[in-house]
Amino acid sequence: MRPVLDIADLSIAANGKTLLDKVSLSIAPGERVGLIGESGSGKSLTALAAIGLLAPGLTATGAISLDGQDVIGASERSMVSLRGNVTATVFQEPLTALDPLQPVGRQIAEPLRRRLRRDGEAAGRTDVAAGVQNLLAQVALPDPLALSRRYPHELSGGQRQRVAIAMALACRPQLLIADEPTTALDVTTQAEILRLLAKLVADNGMALLFISHDLPVVARVVDRVVVMQHGVVVEAGPVGEVFSRPQHDYTRSLVAAARSFDGALEGAA
C-alpha cells in the first residue's frame, strides 16, 4: 500500500545552519507513528515541512510526498489542495491556534464547509450547523449548541483543544498530525485528550503522526516510534521493541527517565 506520508532524506537549513539532517520517515494508511525528541530536536520542523508550511527563510531539501504527491517545490495551490484533504493538524497551544475573535462554532464550520463542498455534499447553512453540532459531540463536548457560540477565551484549555481536534476532524483527513497536543494541558486533561485522540483515530481509520517530547504519552497512542535528537533520527521501530531494547544512548536515557518517573508515581501511590 502507498504510504500516506513518505519523507526521505529531508534536510532543512536556515542561513547556512543545518536544523534537520537527512530525516526519513514513512507512515502507511491507518498507521500510528510517534515522533519523539526534546524541544529543538527538529520534530515540529519535520511536521511543518510535511505540510509545506515552513517559515520563509528555511530551505528544505530531500523528498516529501503526501499521498503520492511531491511537497518540496510544489506550488502553493497544489499544497492548499493537499492540506485539509490528505492531512489535518492539531497544534500545541490551543489558545493561540484558534482565532480569538470568532465563536468556535464558526471556526469549526470553516473547514467543514470546505470539506463538504470538496466531497460534493450539501453545504447549506443548516447542513453545516448540523455538522458542527455533530463534530462537537464527537469530541465529547457538553451542550454543543451553547458551546459553539462561545469564544476561545471563554473555554478551558482542554475544551479548546477538543475544538481544535473537531476542526481537524471536520477535514476527514487520511493523516492526522498532532504536534504536542497535550503539552499545554494539565495531567488529567492530558489523559482525556489522549483517550479521545486514540478513539477518534481508530473510529475514522485515520493514520496518526503524534509528536511529543514525552515518551510515556506517545507510547499510549502509537504503534511505532521514531526518536530524534539534534535534527537527526537516532532510532526507529515498534514501540515495544524500542522500549524494551533501546539501541541508542539518547533513547536509553529517555526510557530510564520515564521508568523512574513511573516508579516514583507507583512508590507514592
Binding site: 508550511l53 485539509g84 491556534a97
Partner: peptide, 20 residues
Amino acid sequence: DYIRTARALGSGFTEALIKH
C-alpha cells in the same frame, strides 16, 4: 498561530488572511 491553523486545515493564504 491561528493563520497557521487555518492553512494547515486547507485554507488558502489569502482566504485565511481575509477571514481571520
